[in-house]
């Protein structure tokens, strides 16, 4: 992975990571649904040090018109990092990395969203990273799926996401920024838990076949934990004062 920093202890002798977590532990995740008044649906996620805002607009007219599809709706995702989201100012123009992440998140959400119901329209998802701390694509994907559900867009399942990876020769869950920079591998996973389908799988680094399998198993466990948090965020907004169920 990126430049290794020799002075960072990624995993101590007790199996505790640099931020005090165990190897199979995720960072603290909190999600709130319906935070933006002007968006059709929205969500705010805090995934460890990541702070991301997601807004969904539409289904609405497609502009430019030539992008519209007479058979189905289209899903457009814009992942964007604020200039102040990282240590050193990031230029606000979309970078190669942001374009790539927008693309993979679109592809991770598409199997879940039932777009055929809205021919000739577009559903726009805007993801603004307010603070980045490694694993933003997973956090953004989880927030986007909550925002889509909040907007009432029909979905086969919520897409949850969590990364797994390898650092200090151990397979770890939910890779943070330090582990991403100095570790050996990072594998973001998008997953639809109820349907048991993986919608996003990337790998940066080198893993053996066994490590790869372990990584996926651990990543899916993380996804299931995030899924429960996503569901409780939606329940809180829609059913919190409910007196049935």
């Amino acid at each position: 992975m990126g430049g290794r920093e020799a002075n960072v202890v990624l995993l101590d002798e007790n199996g505790i990571r640099s931020d005090g977590r165990k190897v199979n532990e995720t960072r603290k995740v909190t999600i709130k649904a319906g935070v933006l008044k002007n968006a059709g649906g929205s969500a705010y996620i805090e995934f460890g040090g990541n702070k991301i805002l997601a807004g969904v607009f539409g289904p609405r007219d497609v502009h430019p018109k030539h992008m519209s599809n007479p058979d189905t709706g289209i899903l457009r995702v814009r992942y964007h990092m604020e200039p102040f989201s990282v240590d050193e100012r990031k230029k606000p123009a979309p970078s190669r990395r942001e374009i790539e992440i927008s693309k993979v998140i679109t592809e991770a959400l598409t199997p879940a969203v039932i777009l055929e119901k809205f021919p000739r329209t577009a559903i726009d998802v805007y993801l603004e990273v307010l603070q980045a701390d490694g694993g933003t694509r997973c956090a953004a994907l989880a927030a986007a799926s909550v925002a889509l559900a909040d907007a009432g867009i029909p979905m086969r399942d919520l897409v949850s996401a969590c990364a797994a990876g390898k650092a200090a020769d151990a397979i770890i869950l939910d890779v943070n920024n330090e582990e991403d920079q100095a570790g050996q591998a990072d594998m973001p996973i998008g997953y639809m838990p109820n349907l048991g389908k993986i919608t996003l799988l990337q790998l940066d680094g080198v893993l053996t076949t066994d490590e790869f399998k372990k990584c996926i198993e651990l990543g899916l466990e993380g996804c299931k934990q995030v899924y429960e948090i996503q569901k409780s965020a939606l329940r809180e907004k829609y059913f919190s004062s409910g007196d049935n169920n």
Binding site: D157, L158, K231
Partner: peptide, 23 residues
């Protein structure tokens, strides 16, 4: 019951009306 996207409702062979899909 309160349901969210992806929540299992039933397996019985029933007519599907609004907002449900068969997987």
């Amino acid at each position: 019951r309160h349901v969210l996207p992806g929540d299992f409702i039933t397996t019985a062979p029933l007519r599907l009306q609004n907002n449900v899909v068969l997987e």
